[in-house]
Amino acid sequence: MGKGCIVIGAAMLDIVMEIDKIPKSGTDVYAKGQTMMVGGCAYNVADILKHFGTNYTLFAPVGTGMYADFIRKELERAGHKSPICSADSDNGYCLCMVEEDGERTFLTVPGIECHFKREWFEELDVENYDSVYVSGYELEGDGGEAILDFLEAHRELTVYYAPGPRITYISEEKAKRMYALHPVLHLNELEAVTSTGEEEIAKASEKLYGWTGNTVLITLGKEGVHLLEDGEYRMVSSKKAEVVDTIGAGDSHIGTVIAMRTAGYEFVEAVRMANCISAKVVSVKGPVLTTEEFEEGRKNNE
C-alpha cells in the first residue's frame, strides 16, 4: 500500500461552451449552452483521488482576483483545499468548446498556475507521500524550473507525468530533466505520435520508454490503452461509452491509475479500472463525477 500523492498543477476556471462545430475564421456562431466550473488537470486528478479515498494534497495555487475567488469557493464546496494562496496574480481560465460529437478544443488563458515558486514547496511534508503527479502545462511555464527542482530533490517519489497537448512546447532541457526522473508516462495517441515522430504506437511507446526507462501508458480512446511495462506490451480494452464530452477523460484516467497503484494493484488492473472511470466521465457533462456517477463507473469493472 502506498502513502499518497502530491498533485502538482492547476485549478482553473473552465467555461464550457456547447457548439455544433468549431467555427471557421471570420464566422459568427451561437453557443447552445454554457457552464462555468472548476477544472484544470490537477483539480480533475485530485477529484478522482478523493473519490477513491486516496491520501492526496492538491498542490495548485489559488491567486487573487475574480477567477481565484470563484475557484476558492468551489474548492471549499467540493471538499478540496490547496496550501498555496498567493496575492501575485489571478488564476487562469480555459474556454472549452465542445462539438456535437463530444470532441473538445481548449483555449487557455494562463494565470498564476504557470508561475510556481520554490518557496511554495517548503511547506510540504513529503514524508506523507510516495508519489507525485505533474502536468505538462505547469512544467512549460516559467514555474517549471521550481517544480523540477523539487522533484530532483525528492527522487524517492514515484513521478506520474501527464505532459498533455503541450508536450512538444516544453523545452528540451526541461523534458530531459523530467525524463531523467524516470516517470510513469501517461499520454494519448496524438501526443505520443507528435512527440516521437513515430506513426506506430508500439514504436512510439518504445521510444518513450527509451527516454524514461519506466512504464508508458498511451490512451487510444475507444480502442483501449497501450501499456508498455518492463518491455512487455499489453492492450487493455476500454468500456463502451455514450460520449457527451471528452473533457477530463485523460485526467480521470491517470487519477484512477494513481489511486489503484497506491492501493497496491498492478498496472493492468489499474488501467482496467481507469478505463471504466474515464468511460463514465465522457458520458457526463464536464470533467468531474458525482459520488453516484463514480460508483456507477467503478461497478462497470466488476
Rank of each mutant, 00 (worst) to 15 (best):
H51Q: 15
S252G: 15
G213K: 08
T64M: 11
G210A: 05
E119C: 07
L227E: 01
I8N: 02
S195F: 09
T215M: 11
L217A: 15
T35M: 14
I22E: 04
L185P: 01
D88N: 03
S238D: 03
N128T: 05
V134T: 11
S89K: 09
K280I: 01
F121K: 11
M12P: 00
T290E: 06
L124A: 09
E229D: 11
F70V: 05
Q34I: 15
L227R: 11
L107A: 13
W211C: 02
L95S: 11
V184D: 02
G63V: 08
G40Y: 01
D14P: 08
A11G: 01
A78M: 11
Y56I: 15
N214L: 06
R72E: 09
M1D: 02
E127G: 06
G33I: 04
S237T: 10
Y161D: 05
L228A: 03
E199Q: 14
A78Q: 15
A274F: 09
A31Y: 12
V243R: 14
E74A: 10
K239N: 08
G224H: 03
M37G: 04
K50H: 04
R118P: 03
K50P: 06
A259D: 04
V282R: 05
E127N: 13
A153C: 06
M66D: 02
E18Q: 12
I277M: 06
K73R: 12
P183T: 07
N188I: 05
P163E: 01
P23L: 09
R234N: 06
S86D: 12
S278G: 10
I218K: 07
C85Y: 10
D142A: 05
V284S: 03
D125R: 11
V126Q: 07
A42R: 13
D230S: 09
R118G: 00
A263Q: 13
V16M: 11
A42L: 09
V184G: 09
V98Y: 06
D14L: 07
I48D: 05
V62H: 04
T256S: 14
L227A: 11
I254L: 07
A31K: 07
V193A: 13
K280M: 14
G286M: 04
E123P: 00
A241W: 00
C96W: 02
S237Q: 10
E18F: 12
V282F: 10
I167W: 00
S89Q: 07
H226G: 05
G250H: 08
N44H: 10
E152Q: 14
G297D: 00
G143P: 03
V281C: 06
G286R: 04
A263S: 14
C85F: 12
L208Y: 06
S171M: 07
S278F: 02
N214A: 13
S89P: 00
R234T: 14
I15C: 10
A68M: 02
D149V: 03
L289A: 12
I71Q: 08
L220Q: 14
R234Q: 12
C96M: 14
V193C: 03
Y56F: 14
F106L: 15
V184C: 12
T262Q: 13
L217E: 04
G213R: 13
N91T: 09
T219M: 08
C276Y: 01
G33Y: 00
T194S: 13
N300P: 00
T212M: 12
T35V: 13
K207C: 03
K240R: 13
E200D: 15
V132P: 12
H51W: 03
K176D: 11
Q34H: 08
H115W: 00
L107F: 10
G63F: 01
S278T: 08
